Each structure stands twice: as C-alpha cells, then as structure tokens.
Simulated scan of single mutants.
Amino acid sequence: MPAKGLAILGAGIFAKEAHLPSLAKLGDVFSLKAVYSRSNKSASAFAKDAKEVLQLQEPPDVYHDEDSAASLDVLLARSDVDAVIVVLPITVQPTVILKALAAGKHVLSEKPVAPDVSRGRALIQEYETKYKPQGLVWRVAENFEAEPGYLAARRIVQEGKLGKITYFSARSYNWIDENSKWYNTPWRTVPDHTIAALRMILDSPFTTLSAHASLAKDILPPHDTINAIARVANGAHGIIELSWGTPVPTRATDAHNSISVTGTDGWLEVTRAPGVFRITVKTATRDEKGKRVGEQTEVIEEKEVGVQFEIAGFLEALDGKDDGLDGPRGTLVDVAFIEAALNSGGAPVDVGKLAQL
C-alpha cells in the first residue's frame, strides 16, 4: 500500500512530545504533508521539529489562521492529504473533526471525544449517519486503549484467571501548580483517561455510580477531585479516586496510583513507572481436590507505547484492518462517567443510559 498522506492539526506540547516521537517509529507507512496551528509561530516551530524528529528532507507545509491563503480550509482541500490527526483544544475539536470529515479526510482526534456527553453524542450520530457510510474512519486517540500493559490485564480478566470479578479500584493523584507545563493547556487534566483504562480492563460496561466532586486547589476550578463508587454489568463494584489538587507533590508521588481488580481466585494490579507498565498477578494455587493451598505471583512488564500503537492502528484501519480500538462510542462512556460523577452529588446515576445514543 502507498504511504498515507498525513497532516497534524495542532502544534502543542502533546503533539510535539508524544505524537512526533511515535510517528518516528512507524517507518514509511505515512508521509507528513502539513501541520496546522492557530498561529504561524507555533505551526512553523512544529514543522521545524518534525523535520528533525522524522528526518525529513523538507519540513511539512505550514498552515495557520493568520493568512487566509494558508488556512485550515486550504489544507483540507489538498488531495494529497488522506488523513488528519487532531491535537487541538477540546473546545474546538468537534468543529474541526466535522470539517475534516466533510472534506473527505479520515480523522484521529485526541481524547476526550468531546467536552461533554451531549456534544459527543451529536458528533457520533453525525459521523455514523453521514460519514461512516462513505468509508471514512474516525477514531478517538485514547492511548490507554492501545497500551499493551492494559491489554495484558484485560486478557487476564477475560481468560478467567482471577475467577469471577468481585471488586476493583482505581487511584490517580496528581500534582499541578502554576509552573507545570500542563497548567495553561487544555491537557492539564484528562480525568476520563483513567476511566478508559479501567473500562478496558474490566471488560464489563459501567451501569451506575454515586460520587462527590470538589475543588481542593483554587487554581484548578471548577473541580479537581472526584471520589466515586461504581458498579459494572457483571455485578462487580469499586472505588475510583481522582485528584489533580494534591497540596504537595508527595501526596501524588506517595499515593500508589494504580488500578486493581479482584476476583474469587486472585487479583491483579497495574502500576506505572517511567516508560513501563507493570502488571502484578496473584492467584490461588490448589491441590488435586481443588482446595486452596497457597498463592502464586506473576509479573508482566510492558513498555509504554500507546500513542505509537494507536496511530499505527489508525493507519491500518484506513486499509480495512480494524483492531476494534479507539471507537468513539467507547470513549463517550468515559466522558459520561466523569460527567455523571461531577453532577451526582452522592445520588446514583445511570451511566449506561447517559452514554446511550
């Protein structure tokens, strides 16, 4: 297959630090034709970085909002651009996604699917009724869905090694202050990221939740902390703790951020270290009569390569090789979970119903 013509829409931190290095590992399956940003300065800087990181003979063409002759519409009119990766602020992404689809481009858009469930639902409905029948591919770049570490944990659950799943937990505490590189960006908090990982591992849809949300740190309004109790369709229930408002860095570093799943025959825990996911699995051992006589431990380590794998999966999907990951409907559930948690006030909320199209 010929290399796909690709454009990147967005030139911020995540596009530079995650997407460019990931693209560099994919070889010649794509050709980066263009980059767009709202400003000429940021788009030009990204193009320069792309030339170096991707070892291009020439930098990709630059498009921005400061010149109508170099606008996003002009970029999308190019016949040599087959697909776009959208890495723009979430408030503008739905409009840009639809504009790209209307121009006949395949789309990989960064998480979340939309700022809220209502806009996410409308976006998915328009794609599925108007653009999907045309053969256009739209995926949401939820890299935790593509992480081998989380997929390994999912397989362990699916294979029944833990027995019947009974309860689970997810904990994510984060330190952010005014000096953080993420503070002034829309990527400073992506709470549905953790929910996506839990959704993948459990392999059972969320049904109801009850939660409280609050603001622990004045610089992160309107809310920076969620504590939720949730239930999934197979009957398991669990606790989810999410906060970006830790008072000091050690509250985050010493929090033991992780996801754990417990069943009738054992449990697993997924933790992260720089560049690595570690899955620790502890299961009961039994004698010939089935009586528990102890337990055994298995440790699996997987490199953190989710962004690379999600882009590779997207490009393969353009050739009809769909791995089933990063579907917009799945990521709508993640937004629904957070929206429900923010509005629950302690009352039960039907997450499944909220995420229905």
Rank of each mutant, 00 (worst) to 15 (best):
L6R: 12
A11Y: 05
A15R: 12
H19N: 08
L23E: 04
K25S: 07
G27D: 08
D28C: 09
F30S: 01
S31V: 06
L32R: 12
L32G: 06
K33N: 14
R38T: 09
S39K: 03
K48M: 08
P60K: 03
D61P: 00
Y63S: 09
H64K: 13
D65I: 02
E66L: 02
S79F: 02
V86Q: 11
I90K: 04
L101N: 08
L108W: 10
E110I: 09
P112D: 13
P112I: 02
P115A: 09
I124R: 12
T129V: 06
L136H: 02
A141F: 05
E147L: 07
G149D: 04
L151P: 01
A152G: 03
Q158A: 15
Q158M: 14
G160N: 03
G160E: 03
K161F: 00
S169Q: 14
R171A: 11
N174I: 12
N184L: 14
T185L: 14
W187I: 08
V190Q: 04
H193K: 00
A196S: 12
A197V: 00
L198I: 10
R199M: 07
I201E: 03
D203N: 15
T207D: 02
A211G: 04
K217C: 04
K217Q: 10
T225G: 03
I226H: 09
I226M: 13
I229S: 07
R231H: 15
N234P: 04
G235C: 05
G235N: 04
L242K: 01
G245M: 01
P247E: 08
R251M: 15
R251K: 15
A255E: 05
H256T: 08
H256E: 12
S258D: 10
V270P: 01
V270F: 01
T271F: 11
R272K: 09
G275F: 15
R278T: 03
I279H: 04
E288W: 02
K289T: 07
K289Q: 12
G290E: 01
R292A: 00
G294T: 00
E302M: 13
K303G: 15
F309T: 09
E310A: 03
E310V: 12
A312R: 13
A317N: 07
K321T: 15
D323R: 08
L325Q: 06
D326K: 06
R329M: 05
L332R: 02
V333A: 06
V333M: 08
V335D: 03
F337G: 07
A347Y: 05
L354P: 10
Q356T: 13
